[in-house]
């Protein structure tokens, strides 16, 4: 590093490189991640660990408790699996959804309006897009840790029966990315906390009815179509396929759904960035 350049010049020179969206993006998302990591180190690990237990507790209560009454059910491709093995992938998909939505709606909204962190970041060379992407990435990183831990639990309980199950980790990150991107897009329209409560309110029925705890075939076909349009169903199916290594074109379709959801969410967030961060 040459000593002749002043720090301002250093920063300006870096920013002089061509990049998309120069008014709202400085290409320095890494600094936001770095800050997140520094903060996590000093934070209460109890809160972070609690996020891991939620799906595990559901799995134990439903899979082992309720599963004893249910017995075996039909898994992907028609193979018989234990009830615990049937719902475990759904629990992972749901937990990826919950974490991503919480982080991208409530957490972001709070930090925007009441916390001072984003305000401080935005008075530097960072643009709102650096902050938004960094925040999503941090949420995904946490989701990644949870997914790895949950998969380990599944393996220990003998619920993961294929090496393909390892792909459940990146799948969880993809599902979280889709939900986080859309969540942040929705947050850009929110004026008050109560409006975000609506999203949280929509998530519980989505969890209960998206073929998480029983197959979608119990519904009349019109209801089935509706459920199949919702994101969590795609997440659950994707996970279920991977858990037993039953890969079809449908598996790819579910993954594509989340890729599209991510792209849409990021597009809305970028367009709405000024409204979201610069009010």
């Amino acid at each position: 590093m040459s000593r002749e350049l002043s720090p301002t010049q250093l920063a300006v020179e870096r920013l002089a490189r061509p990049r998309p969206a120069p008014g709202i993006w400085s290409g320095n998302m890494v600094a936001v991640l770095e800050r997140g990591w520094q903060a996590i180190k000093t934070q209460n690990w109890g809160i972070i660990i609690s996020g891991f237990f939620e799906p595990v507790l559901y799995l134990l209560a439903m899979g082992w408790g309720l599963g004893a009454l249910v017995g075996e059910v039909e898994g992907p491709g028609g193979a018989k699996v234990s009830y615990a093995a049937y719902i475990a992938p759904a629990m992972l998909a749901t937990s990826a959804m919950n974490g991503a939505i919480y982080d991208s709606t409530m957490n972001v909204f709070f930090k925007l309006n009441f916390g001072k962190l984003y305000q401080a970041m935005l008075q530097t060379s960072l643009g709102p897009l650096d902050v938004a992407l960094g925040e999503i990435m941090l949420a995904l990183f946490r989701g990644l840790l949870y997914a790895v831990a949950f998969l380990a639990v599944m393996a220990a309980l003998g619920l993961a029966t294929s090496w393909w199950a390892l792909l459940m980790v990146p799948a969880a990150v993809l599902i979280a990315f889709g939900f986080a991107a859309v969540g942040m897009g929705v947050t850009s329209f929110a004026q008050r906390f109560q409006q975000l409560d609506l999203i949280m309110f929509a998530m519980l029925p989505m969890f209960l009815f998206s073929a998480t705890l029983y197959p979608i075939s119990v519904y009349p076909s019109a209801v089935q179509l509706f459920i199949q349009a919702l994101p969590l169903w795609h997440g659950v199916e994707l996970m279920r396929h991977l858990a037993v290594g039953h890969l079809t074109w449908a598996t790819l379709g579910h993954a594509t759904y989340f890729t599209a959801m991510t792209a849409l969410g990021l597009w809305v967030t970028t367009v709405r960035m000024r409204k979201l961060f610069l009010r």
Binding site: M1, P7, L10, A11, N28, E34, R35, Q38, T124, S125
Partner: peptide, 13 residues
């Protein structure tokens, strides 16, 4: 230090 990182400045500085 972290505030300087937001400007993309190196830790060595």
């Amino acid at each position: 230090i972290m505030y300087g990182r937001y400007f993309g400045l190196p830790r060595s500085y």
